[in-house]
Each structure stands twice: as C-alpha cells, then as structure tokens.
C-alpha cells in the first residue's frame, strides 16, 4: 500500500522526469521539480496528502509522520 501511495504522489508531481529532488522532513515532502505546472494538487490530495503548498518549482506535500517512508519509496521509483 505504501508503495502505491508513493507511486500516486510521484505521478501527481508530474512523474519521475519532473523531479529534481525530494527530501522528507518529519511531516512533509519538500520537493524541487522541473515544471511547476505539471503538479496536480487534487491528485496529491487524493493520494493522501493533508495539504499542498506550492511556490513555483518548490512543492511541499504534507503527508504526516510517514514522510520518511514515502520519500524512500519514491526514491526507489526514481
């Protein structure tokens, strides 16, 4: 299940080609991306995000305490 969540979040961030860097921080994924317009906020929330904050190419996806696990699952998919 956790892997599915990671895959859904990755897809909603525009896929692996759009990811520059993903860093977990306790409750959120701090993501640097290539193209901010490819981020699908609704899909991120469907994937389980509690909130999404985007400023240009920096997106913070609030996923709760499993951020570390999800980030490593996403790293595995990259």
């Amino acid at each position: 299940m956790a892997e599915d969540k990671a895959a859904a979040i990755l897809a909603a961030l525009g896929g692996k080609g759009n990811i520059v860097e993903i860093e977990p921080c306790i409750t959120r994924l701090r993501c640097e991306i290539e193209d901010g317009s490819k981020v699908d906020e609704a899909a991120l929330k469907t994937a389980g995000a509690h909130g999404v904050m985007q400023q240009g190419t920096v997106v913070q996806v609030v996923v709760g305490p499993e951020a570390d696990t999800i980030a490593s699952d996403i790293e595995d998919l990259l």
């Binding site: 409750t27 959120r28 509690h50 909130g51 904050m53 913070q60 609030v62 709760g64 305490p65």
Partner: peptide, 9 residues
C-alpha cells in the same frame, strides 16, 4: 507555518 497553524498533521 501553515502545516502547523492549519493543523494539517
């Protein structure tokens, strides 16, 4: 920080 002030977690 909205993550905390909006009680997202």
């Amino acid at each position: 920080d909205p993550v905390f002030s909006q009680e997202m977690v």
